[in-house]
Amino acid sequence: MSVAAESDVSGAAAGGASGTSMHRAAGEWGVSGLTINYGRRPALVDVTLAVPGGAITAVVGSDGSGKTTLARALAGALKPSAGSVRRPASRRIGYVSAASGVYRDLTVDENLEFTGGAYGLRGAALRERAAQLLTRTRLTDAHDRLAGNLSGGMRQKLAFAMAVLHEPELLILDEPTTGVDPVSRAELWRLIAGAAAAGTGVLFATSYLDEAERASMVLVLNRGRELVGGDPAAIVAALPGAMFTVPVAGRRDGSGSEGDAAAEPGAAEAVLDGREAPYRWRRGADWRVWSPGGAPPAGGTAARVDLSDAVIVASLQAREGAA
């Protein structure tokens, strides 16, 4: 295991031409060949992922896929069984665990004060930074409320504020939007993008692909191993074959117009059966069908591949490979 020393290389970030003075050195953090075992059980197997400064990197997977393990290993909270971790010194890391780490019986101010103290911020510097973050997270009016009384979205924003209080070079967010509604999530995403725009490297774990699509790089984990990874557009482009949609017979038209709602049981299977189209799954009123050879299924219309399609196909192929 080698942990890179804190790098303080100064150099203009890519967008240094702009008028913002917030740009800092873009570190190149990440893990390489990382394997972590819990006892005998492997939680991560040979995972490599770069988490560059000034960008958002998403890790996608189900509960138990290893994404929390990866986040914690990058944060330095777990010792690799094999492979290496490149990360800044721990006081330059901001980490939000899935449990968010906010003290519910302290106020917003007290939470920030405590975290600031832990990172050696105090006095006027702490007050100024805390006020700035409260404004940015729109929590100023809630500054004296107990964190336990905040909504889920506000609490996650507080967790974010606590994690970036000391202006870390690497920000690790484990499912920061779980249980957060879309309005708060949009705010949270904007905050996270802001951190990346200012040069911070962001690692973001989620179980939803629609979220991961906003990141510049994506790693999909399946039982501790990489399923697919890379630029979302590249993952999509790399899918061979072709995608089709096949409408489900008897399904009420999604547009709400008159349709035959009294579906015959099994009508869908009459159109497609497993032998004809083994790679198929539902999306709304249609089947999505992937054809490895590119031949269209009966009644199929060509469809644009998206990240979700690519990941589902990869999962199905992995499952076949294992069987």
Binding site: V60, G61, S62, L209, S315, L316
Partner: peptide, 10 residues
Amino acid sequence: SGVDPLARAR
């Protein structure tokens, strides 16, 4: 919530 994309599709 909390499941992988294939499980979600299924």
